[in-house]
Design a protein around this nucleic acid. Structure first.
Lengths: 108, 108
DNA sequence: AGCATATTCAACCGTTAGGTTGAATGATGT
DNA sequence: ACATCATTCAACCTAACGGTTGAATATGCT
């Protein structure tokens, strides 16, 4: 139950291109909210909200240093997302293998 | 441009748990709309809409046989999604390596 | 103390997601 | 021809998303 809900939150967080860009930015290392917001053609507030969603999905964590908030990436939830996709491909390939075998039998 | 938009559509389609369940179902092979809808506690119409979104993301394609529509999985767009996630992890690890080297230097 | 900076909170707005119900379309079977 | 089955279309609803602006909060600087 909890694992499923966690994947839901992760996938939802990844659905938005701005949030994906924020995560990419954070692979380089920590950054403050203002720094993260700078490249985007939207208000600081909008970016702040995106960051909050990333925190809810536990993809980002926050370290307060006075008035500055340093965000950092937490890549662990990405594992479950990658696993899900990998599973789909695995099952898909199994099915294709079965199809191939069936076709081979037809030729006999 | 197009590649980015395609990833957007894929990620958006994957964001919903019902749609992910539909994709999982389709790894087994083709299925009709009614069959796909059966397990879900929602109307056929709702599932039909989800399927349309999956088609828009090119994750599912449709073969009409009389009044029955057979859906099948197209896993190719998943590659880009998996690649994106893998990139994040790669960059993240590079950054950690750099950190380790920095710490090692500090000890000299 | 007073001003500037970093960030969030709160209220609002337009669009879309996700669902419903009811009617329309189109193919099947008798 | 007719009733049934498979699916979509259309209209509607509510909640959430993604954005805005303006005020609040808290820290830092001089």
């Amino acid at each position: 139950m909890l694992a499923v809900a966690a994947l839901d939150a992760t996938m939802l967080a990844l659905a938005d291109p701005t949030r994906r860009a924020i995560l990419s930015r954070l692979t380089t290392g920590e950054a403050r909210v203002t720094e993260i917001a700078a490249p985007f053609a939207m208000s600081l507030n909008a970016v702040s909200k995106h960051i909050r969603m990333l925190e809810r999905a536990d993809l980002v964590s926050r370290r307060r240093a006075g008035r500055e908030h340093y965000l950092s990436l937490n890549p662990r939830p990405l594992d479950a997302a990658a696993d899900w996709i990998e599973q789909q491909r695995t099952f898909w390939n199994h099915r294709l293998d079965a199809l191939e075998r069936a076709l081979a039998e037809d030729q006999d």
